[in-house]
Design a protein around this nucleic acid. Structure first.
Lengths: 345, 345
DNA sequence: TAGGCCCTGGACAACGTTGTCAGAAGCGGG
DNA sequence: CCCGCTTCTGACAACGTTGTCCAGGGCCTA
C-alpha cells in the first residue's frame, strides 16, 4: 500500500487519532488506548493488530489531549537569565537530568535579566501547566506567582531568593565564599584590596560585597570607598573600574572580582600591565588553570545547584508538603597562582 | 475577602476555569474567552467585570486545552547533544530568540550523544505536538521522523545533516574551514602536520578530515598514517594521541585539532613541553586570546547556526513548502599566535 | 411607530484522550 | 445443558478551550 500514512478526506497536516487506529485495527477506541499505555487486559493477538495499525498509520499519541484529561503535564519549566552564559548551561543540564529521571521534560526560557520578561515567561509556562517551576530570578518581586503556587505549581528558586514571597530557595554561600576569598588575599599579605562587583540590589552581589567587608573588618582594615566599584557589568566599564583601582596614587595590590565576566575582563587588564597584581575571582571558568598565572577562584557548583533545586522540586511534587526553606551550598576556593601573588607596591 | 483564590468543593491543586470566571462575573463562558483572547465585541463594562473576576480567582488559561482545540502549540523543540557544552548554549539561545519573535516557546533536550535517546526525545517532543523540530543529530538514521514530517512537523537539522532522509540542514563549512586551517599552517612553513579528530562516522569529523587531506594534497605532501588520530575524544586518549604525534622519531611540527575539547587538551600537553609546536583548533573558545600564545582557531558561529536554522523552521511553518535544501555557513580563521609559530625540528 | 440592522452575549459541539462502567465472550462445574 | 465467574472489549462522559451559530436588544430610518 502506497498511502499508508495518508487518510483520505483529511487535509495535509492532520494526524491519525486513536479513533482512526481503532477503525483500522477493527477494535474499540479504548482498546487502542490500553495498548498505547501498556495497560493490562488485552489479548496478545489484539495487541498485535493494534500495533500494526499504529505503525501503518504513523500514529502518535497527542499529549495535549492526554494532559487535558490527566491534569499533569510531566514537564517542568526553568527560567534563567541566559542560556548562552556558561554558568547556566550545566545548571540547566542538571535540572534536565533530574527531570528526566522523573519522566519529565524540561522547558527553559531566558529572561535576559529583564524582570518583565521573567514574569512573562514564568506565567507562560504556568499556562502550559508545567508541574513545577525552577526560577533564577531576574526581578525582585515574585508575588505574581502566588496564585500559581496556591494552585499547586511546585516552585523552587535558585541562585537568588524569591522576592516578597516565601518559597524554597537553593543558594550558594556567596557571603562565605567571598569572605574566604578576601581572607585568602589578606593571608598573603595584601592590605589594599579592591572589589569590583555588580549592583547590590542583586542578592548575590550584595552577599559577596558583605563577605568582602566582613573579611576586611575581621582583619581590622578600614575599607576606602575608592577600592569598591559596584554596578560595572559590561566589559568597558569593568575595564575603566579596574584601571581606576590600579592607577591611583595608592593603587590596590589585589583585586577580588565579583563574578565571572568581571574576572575575565580584569585578567585582560592585568595582562597588559607590568606590575603583578593578585586576583581572586568569584565563579570558576574553563581554562582558568591554563592562564599565566592560573586564576584563583571561588567556585560554585552550577550543576549541583541545578540538581539540588530539581530534587527539591520533585520532592514538592511527589510528596509531603513542607514549609519553604533555604538550602545553602558551600563554595570552594581553588588556588591556581593569581591569588597567591605577594603584594607589590 | 480572604479566600478569593479558593473555590469551595474543589480539592487542593485544582484551578479555576473560564466557566468559573464566567459564573463569578455573571457572563457567558464565551464572553470570558473573548476577553482573554482580546477578541472584539465586548462592552468595556463587561470586559472590566471579567477582568475583575479573573484577578479575584487567579485564573490562567489552560493552554493544553487551547492547543487541543487549535491544533498549534506555538512551541518548537530543540534536540541537542549537551546543553552544558559551551558550543550549544549560544546556539540554543539563538533558536529561542527567533522562536520568541514568532511567539513560540522552546523546549530543548539533551541527547547525550546517544542515538536512542535522541529518538526518544524527538518523538516525545512530537507527542507534545511541537510545531517544529530543530535537531542536532546524534544518530545517523532519522527515518523514524518520516511520519512526523509527513504529518506536518517542520524539521531542520543543524551542524550535521539528517541520515537516510531528505531534510533541511544548516551546516558549517567544515571542509573549507579545515582546509583553510591546514593551508595556513603550510603557509607558515610546516610540512609534518598532525590531525587529531573524532570518529569519521560523525559527519563533521569526516568533513574536517577531508579538508585536512585536501590541503595536504594541494601542497603535494603525502600524509603519513601516524600523523592522524581519529576517535580519541576523552582527554586521556587525546593526551596520549598528542604525545604519540610529538614524541616519535620524526615528530610533527604542527597540530590541527579537530574540535574544541581536543584543542584544549592539546594546549595543555603543549604547555608542558619546551619545544614550541604550532596549533590551530577547530571551534573557537572563550579566553583563547588570553593563553600564551593565543590559540589560532577556525571559528564557527554557533549563534548564527541556531538563528539560521530557526528562521528556516519558521519559513517552513509560515509558508510556501519547498524542497529540502542545505545551507552552508562560512567559517572564519582567527589568528592569535599559536598557528603562526614557525616549524622547529 | 414599525421594520431592519448591527452589536453583544451565550448555547453547543468539537478537539483527542482517559476513567468508569457495563456488556460480551469464554470457560468450568453442577 | 445451563449458570456463574472471569477475562476482555467497547460505549460514553469528561477534561477546558475555541469556533459556529443564533437570540435578544438597542438604535436608526422610513
Amino acid at each position: 500500500m502506497a498511502d499508508t500514512a495518508r487518510r483520505p478526506g483529511n487535509r495535509y497536516g492532520s494526524r491519525p487519532t486513536m479513533k482512526d487506529v481503532a477503525a483500522h485495527a477493527g477494535v474499540g477506541l479504548k482498546t487502542v488506548s490500553r495498548v498505547v499505555n501498556g495497560e493490562p487486559g488485552v489479548t496478545p493477538d489484539t495487541e498485535r493488530r493494534v500495533h500494526e495499525a499504529i505503525n501503518a498509520l504513523g500514529f502518535r499519541r497527542n499529549d495535549s489531549a492526554r494532559v487535558l484529561r490527566k491534569g499533569r503535564t510531566a514537564s517542568v519549566g526553568l527560567v534563567l537569565e541566559d542560556l548562552a552564559d556558561p554558568f547556566y548551561g550545566p545548571l540547566s543540564r542538571a535540572v534536565e537530568e533530574v527531570a528526566r529521571a522523573h519522566g519529565a521534560l524540561l522547558i527553559n526560557g531566558s529572561s535576559a535579566e529583564d524582570p518583565d520578561r521573567e514574569q512573562e515567561l514564568a506565567l507562560a509556562l504556568c499556562a502550559r501547566r508545567v508541574d513545577g517551576l525552577v526560577v533564577i530570578p531576574a526581578g525582585d518581586d515574585h508575588r505574581y506567582l502566588e496564585p500559581e503556587i496556591r494552585a499547586g505549581v511546585a516552585t523552587v528558586f535558585v541562585d537568588r531568593p524569591a522576592g516578597k514571597i516565601d518559597a524554597d530557595a537553593v543558594l550558594s554561600d556567596n557571603f562565605g565564599g567571598a569572605r574566604h576569598a578576601v581572607a585568602h588575599l589578606l593571608a598573603h599579605g595584601h592590605r589594599r584590596i579592591g572589589f569590583i562587583g555588580d549592583r547590590p540590589v542583586i542578592h548575590t552581589a550584595a552577599e559577596r560585597l558583605r563577605g568582602y567587608r566582613a573579611a576586611m573588618a575581621e582583619a581590622g582594615i578600614p575599607v576606602e570607598d575608592t577600592w569598591i566599584s559596584l554596578g560595572a557589568t559590561d566589559p568597558e566599564r569593568v575595564r575603566r573600574a579596574a584601571e581606576t583601582l590600579l592607577d591611583g596614587p595608592e593603587p590596590v595590590t589585589a583585586v577580588f572580582a565579583g563574578n565571572n565576566r568581571v574576572t575575565v575582563t580584569v585578567v585582560r587588564v592585568l595582562s597588559e600591565r607590568p606590575r603583578p597584581t593578585a586576583l581572586v575571582g568569584f565563579d570558576d571558568f574553563e581554562l582558568a588553570d591554563l592562564l599565566q598565572p592560573g586564576v584563583t577562584v571561588v567556585a560554585q557548583d552550577a550543576a549541583q545547584l541545578g540538581r539540588t533545586a530539581a530534587e527539591r522540586l520533585f520532592q514538592q511534587l511527589d510528596g509531603v508538603p513542607h514549609a519553604p526553606e533555604r538550602t545553602m551550598l558551600p563554595t570552594r576556593l581553588i588556588t591556581r597562582g593569581s591569588g597567591e601573588l605577594p603584594p607589590v607596591d
